[in-house]
Computed example of a mutant assay.
Amino acid sequence: MSVEILDVIPDKLEYWPGETITGKVILKVKNSSIQSQGIFLNFKGGATVEIMEQVRRMQSGNRRSSTLIEHYAYPNSENLLSITNFLAGDGRTSLTHREGDTTYPFSIQLPSHLVSSYYRISAPIHYRDSGTQCKGQVLYYLEVGMMMAGMAAHVSQKTIAIHAHLDLTTVPETTQAGEAEATKTFCNCWSCCFGCQSGPFILKVRTDKRGYLPGETIAFEVEVRNESGRIIREISAQFIEAATMVGQGKTECAIIPLGEMVVSNQEFRAEDENWRGELVVPMEGTVYPSKLGGGCGIISVEYFIKIVAHANGCGNQDLEVSSSVIIGTCRGGASRVPSAKIKSYLKCKFNRHSSTFIQYFLINK
């Protein structure tokens, strides 16, 4: 006697807060009947963060020098939701499941507010460099299993995507104009020893509003006031995600460029010049509602348009300025329709470390 199949099949894989998850659980028993204390169906959600830090240190020995590479992990997790239910039995009383197929329909009412599903990983660290890599995820899943001898058995899971609500009409700042400014003075290379500084270089960016939906166009205007004497060879614009992830003992902000970069393809030689451009907000599934709709304590997501002026000259001659934007899911309460195809981030999972660890590698020089 054995359980051949115990699986949960939801009617769809993407939901909005306040909706009802419906579907069925299929049990197939072969050879003969079996005993259990019931079949449970849970719906769970949680956030996980893992910050990996790599530190490169130099060591000197009697005969040779070497590089010491130390790895540190700062994991963290937060439970966001747990709904438990028994489809058959109560977890205590003995229950007989006869040979053959049995179907259990189910429905689970979602709360009216949930954090958005999310997955992001920052760029990897080169094995010889110091740096950090961040992984963050908000995951929801259905979990079905059978209680046998007081323990969960035949457990299987099915991931569900949650699209959090963020109505832009409820956030007053979204209708306000966006504006940011940065200033820099350059050191003249031929007179660095004398501390000679150039005149100021001022970079401003403006947008007519701050709130946008996925797929919309952000029109921006860049104002350049250049008294530095340097030629600005070009200006670039990029849509940026800033994901703040809170590990146990360390907090990092991962900066992730999204979409295509826009470049001015012109030089700026005059003291006062302007450049107008457009950026397209990536589609849903690539971007998420700002702050993931709110309510997550270890992952916070914000968006910016980053403007970089690239000046001629030696050293770091770039000046950048970032203006924040707010990404929502609707205006006026009408929900955007989720795509029929499940997002790729739902398939992503990563292992969590229970404690900080250190690994040592010696690289001979």
Rank of each mutant, 00 (worst) to 15 (best):
M1S: 13
S2L: 09
E4D: 15
I5V: 15
L6H: 04
D7K: 14
D7W: 07
P10D: 04
Y15V: 11
E19Q: 09
K24R: 11
I26D: 07
V29L: 07
N31R: 12
S33M: 06
Q35L: 15
Q37V: 04
G46A: 13
A47V: 05
T48A: 12
I51W: 03
R57P: 00
G61Y: 00
T67W: 02
E70D: 10
E70S: 06
H71G: 01
Y74E: 04
P75G: 06
P75M: 02
L80A: 04
L87M: 07
L87R: 03
L87D: 03
R92T: 14
T93R: 13
T96I: 13
P105I: 05
S107C: 00
Q109G: 07
H113T: 12
S117C: 11
T132R: 10
Q133S: 12
G136N: 12
Y140E: 02
Y141L: 13
L142K: 01
L142I: 10
M146V: 04
M151K: 15
A152R: 15
H154F: 15
I162N: 02
A164S: 15
L166N: 01
T169L: 13
A177D: 01
E179A: 15
A180Q: 11
K184F: 01
T185R: 14
N188S: 04
N188A: 02
C192P: 00
G195A: 08
C196A: 13
C196L: 13
Q197K: 14
P200S: 02
P200I: 03
I202R: 03
I202S: 03
I202M: 07
L203C: 04
R210F: 01
G211P: 09
G215N: 05
T217D: 13
G229E: 04
I235C: 07
Q238L: 11
Q238V: 09
E241W: 04
E241S: 13
P257Y: 04
L258R: 08
V262W: 00
V263D: 09
N265H: 15
E271Q: 12
V281K: 02
P282Q: 01
G285C: 11
G285Y: 10
T286Q: 13
G293R: 06
C296R: 06
I298V: 12
A309K: 02
H310E: 10
C314F: 07
Q317L: 00
E320M: 15
G332N: 07
A334W: 09
S335F: 03
P338S: 07
S339H: 10
F350E: 08
R352H: 12
R352T: 09
R352D: 10
N364A: 12
